[in-house]
């Protein structure tokens, strides 16, 4: 199986929060912003909505600091997965995450975090604006390059 990655495009995000609500609904069967594993930040300076969640780092600091072995890398999907039944709620992972991804769930008294829904993310399925996509790693990289090139050529056109 080729690796898939979540691709976020803040420029397409409208801030409708469907992903947030679907995230909590698919995991917790509740439409709850505070229990969702994805957040949408509003960046005033840029007038931009930014969906944020776990970046599934290849050597995650959260996994390193967790004293209860609750966090591990899924060798299949590459996702960083949290086991809330093992977590003791010490909050160290939350303190050290550079993206503020882990969410403390007061119902379970444990951390929850994006698990890429085991390979079929609910947030992606619900996003009507393609701000969130789940693509093959290679495809995502190629697209990124192409877009960067397009940006450069547009800039060059303006100059010439």
């Amino acid at each position: 199986m080729s690796k898939k990655v979540l691709v976020l495009d803040p420029e397409k995000c409208t801030g409708c929060m469907s992903c947030v609500l679907m995230c909590s609904f698919s995991h917790e069967k509740a439409f709850s912003v505070s229990r969702a594993r994805i957040r949408v930040l509003w960046l005033e300076e840029l007038a931009l909505h930014l969906p944020t969640m776990c970046m599934h780092c290849s050597t995650p600091l959260c996994e390193e600091v967790c004293p209860s072995g609750a966090i591990s890398k899924d060798p299949e999907t590459g996702a960083t997965v949290f086991d809330h039944t093992v977590c003791v709620g010490c909050k160290m992972c939350m303190m050290v995450c550079p993206f503020g991804a882990p969410v403390f769930d007061t119902k379970r008294m444990a951390m929850i975090c994006c698990d890429l829904c085991g390979g079929d993310p609910a947030c992606v399925k619900t996003c009507a604006f393609e701000a969130l996509q789940f693509l093959d790693l290679e495809e995502a990289v190629v697209r990124r390059r192409r877009e960067a090139l397009a940006k450069v050529s547009r800039a060059l056109e303006k100059l010439i």
Binding site: V5, V7, E45, L50, H56, T77, P98, E147
Partner: peptide
């Protein structure tokens, strides 16, 4: 981080992770 967290995030992209469009 405040203005473009996704730029910063690029250096942390992992396998199966998240790729941002800049």
């Amino acid at each position: 981080l405040r203005i473009s967290p996704w730029l910063y995030a690029l250096s942390h992209v992992g396998e199966g992770g998240v790729v941002f469009r800049v």
